[in-house]
Every structure is written in C-alpha cells, then in structure tokens.
Design a protein around this nucleic acid. Structure first.
Length: 366
DNA sequence: AAGGCGGGGGC
DNA sequence: GCCCCAGCCTT
C-alpha cells in the first residue's frame, strides 16, 4: 500500500468498516430495524438526545403507537404527555404534523425517497439521510455530532462546523467517504465509532485503529477538534407560579402557547418577576396581596416548592405557591380549571413535576 | 446568518 | 461550572 492510498478516503472507509465488523459491540433496539416508522421515531427521539435518555421513550412510543396511523389518530395531549420530560417539545409537535403528512400526502405509506422524507416536518438533512439509508439502503451520508467529531479530528478540519461553510464541508466530506454499496452499515458504523471510540472527552486514541492516520492525533491536538464558532449566552428567568384552587378541588392551568420555552406544555398561574422572586417570603406575600386584589390569599400562604433548572440557553428559577383562591374571574382569563386528579393527564415542564406530584398526592390522602 | 429550543450526564 | 448529545425550525 503506497502513502497516497493509506491516507485516502477509501482507506478511512475500509478501516472503519473493518472496525465495525470486528470491534463494534454497540447494541440498540432499532439497529437492523427496517420499518421506516420505527426508525423515524428513534431518530426524532434521539435528536440532541443521548441514547440512554431516549431509550425508554422509544419503547413507550412504539408500544402506544405501533403505526403511523395510531400516532395520527391520537389525542395530541396524550402524545405530549408521553413526550413529557424528554425536552425539545417542538419535536413532538412536528412528529404529529409529519404523521398527518404521511397519512394525507403519502397515503399512509412512509415516503421512500430522500427528498420526500426531507419534506416531512421535523426532518432535516441528518434525519432524512438516516431514514433513507437505514430503511431503504439509499446512499445518503449522515452528518451528526459524532460524524463531525470523527471527521474533524481525522482530517484536522478546522472550519467551524456551526457555520454555512462548515456544514457544507462536512457534508461533502461525508458524502465522499460513504460506502455507497452498504450505506446503512457505514452510517451506523461511523456514529457508533464516534460514540464509543472517538468520544468528546477522553477519546480512546491508544486503541483506535485509525490513530496512525489521524491528522490531529499525529499533531497531538485531538481535543482541539471539532471547532465551534459561537458561544451560547445564558440568561436567567424567575417564575412565580401560584397554585390557585377553587372549592371543587380544581386548579387553574393553561397551555403555554406563547413563543417561549415549554410550548404546548402546561403551567399554573404565572408571574415572571425577578425582584419579587428574590424577595423574602414576607415581602413576597405582602406584594402579591397588594398587586393582585383579584386574588384571595389565605393565612397559610406557603412556598410549596422551589426549583432551579438549567436549560441550554436559560437558567430557570421557579417558586410554586399554594393557599391562593380566586376573587375576580377576570384575573384568570386564558386559564381554565382542571380537576386535581386529572393533573397527571396533561404534560408539565420537568421543573413543575414535583409540585404536580405532591398536589395529586395530597388530594389522595384525606 | 443567528437565535431558540430541554433535560441529562461527563468531567 | 462548562460542554455535549443520532438537529431542526423560525426569524
């Protein structure tokens, strides 16, 4: 083998496929699956989500909605309830939208060309390539976080991947490297390789069968790759949620429809106010009483639960307060009453789930 | 082109 | 604390 061949694309691909055949012991339920519906579900669930985190959701969804028709006929609230806790809730909304696209535009049959798959809501270049290759053996190369990491290190690509130019470069490189005769095996192989060998921190370069030809490893700067251009700014949010109860064991809630976090999930009566949040309880309760004459605050006004949640772009602080009733119905416009016993049928953000659980628990214990 | 979107886990 | 994860949509 001459030098040119050793450092060629075909060398990379051949070595990777060899690793896959002999040393890839990663197991996942959808591996080798050919039902495009199941592959689609697994891919949507795993967008920006680690396998371990998405696994139980995959099983729940397959069991509850075994076909695209089941999903399309479902009550959206039930689907969101099943998605509850997984995050990135627009994925769930788009899942429902796409299920309808498949039923109405494609006569209930999952589309079998790259462009038709790409036309479905919530499916971008990565997911379209994954479904096209895994379900239909079509020659499209996936580019996900794993692929970007492996390629940027092996070829020492220093173009930031989160730019238009970077995306183009990585996609083109991935296309060149693809084993077009067995794209499903190749795509699975490179992602498994990234997830188990060429990991973000502490990559296993010592045992890596590609390390002798890996440009960044040869320069001893593996951890400088991949290169990213933007830094995420984080802002703080302070929410006070009043758990307003009537004398029929009902709680005031509404679905979050605004352009904000937790769209399509539910919330209690919301007050977003930093200084109020940070105030002492006495001051907080006193201010609430004067600012909301339409509410009636009991003597046992208490902070029921307090939470801090770290999201990608925000740090969210939440207080849940009980002991509040309604004087003036006007205050509650946009909200509606729900039986406490039914609170577990609708989806809430993770940060509210402790409060929800305790509410239901209290209701059950007289 | 840039910004927003959840929650969990590794270090 | 910061970074990453089988990315995508909207503006």
């Amino acid at each position: 083998m001459n030098t040119k061949e050793r450092f060629s694309d075909t060398f990379f691909t051949r070595q990777l496929m060899r690793w896959n055949a002999n040393f890839n012991f990663r197991e996942m339920p959808w591996k080798g699956e050919s039902d495009p519906y199941k592959i689609w579900l697994s891919e949507i669930i795993l967008q920006q989500t680690q396998v371990a985190q998405g696994l139980s959701y995959y099983h729940k969804f397959i069991q509850t909605y075994p076909t695209v028709s089941h999903l399309n006929n479902a009550d959206p609230n039930d689907v969101f309830k099943l998605w509850e806790g997984l995050g990135y809730y627009s994925r769930c909304k788009n899942l429902l939208f796409a299920a309808n696209q498949i039923v109405t535009n494609f006569n209930c049959r999952f589309p079998d060309t790259y462009n038709d798959i790409l036309s479905l809501k919530g499916i971008g270049p990565y997911t379209a390539a994954a479904i096209a290759s895994f379900a239909f053996k079509l020659p499209y190369a996936v580019v996900d976080g794993n692929v970007i990491r492996v390629l940027s290190r092996y070829f020492a690509i220093s173009t930031p991947y989160d730019t238009t130019e970077g995306k183009k470069i990585f996609q083109e490189k991935a296309n060149e490297l693809l084993d077009t005769k067995q794209p499903h095996l190749y795509n699975q192989a490179i992602m498994d390789f990234g997830a188990t060998v060429c990991t973000p921190a502490n990559p296993a370069c010592i045992q890596c069968i590609l390390s002798k030809h890996c440009a960044s490893n040869l320069k001893n700067n593996v951890l400088d790759f991949p290169v990213k251009s933007k830094k995420i700014l984080k802002r703080k949010r302070f929410f006070i949620f009043l758990i307003i109860e009537n004398n029929k064991k009902q709680i005031l809630v509404k679905k979050r429809e605004q352009n904000d976090i937790w769209q399509n999930l539910h919330q209690f009566f919301e007050i977003e106010n930093e200084s109020l949040f940070l105030a002492e309880n006495d001051t907080l309760f006193q201010t609430l009483k004067t600012q909301f004459p339409g509410l009636q605050f009991s003597d046992q006004l208490t902070v029921f639960d307090e939470q801090k949640q770290t999201l990608t772009h925000q740090t969210v602080y939440s207080k849940f307060i009980t002991g509040v009733q309604l004087n003036d119905p006007e205050i509650a416009s946009g909200y509606s009453w729900i039986n406490i016993a039914d609170l577990d049928k609708i989806a809430f953000p993770k940060t509210a789930q402790k409060a929800v659980k305790e509410l239901i628990f209290i209701k059950k214990t007289p």
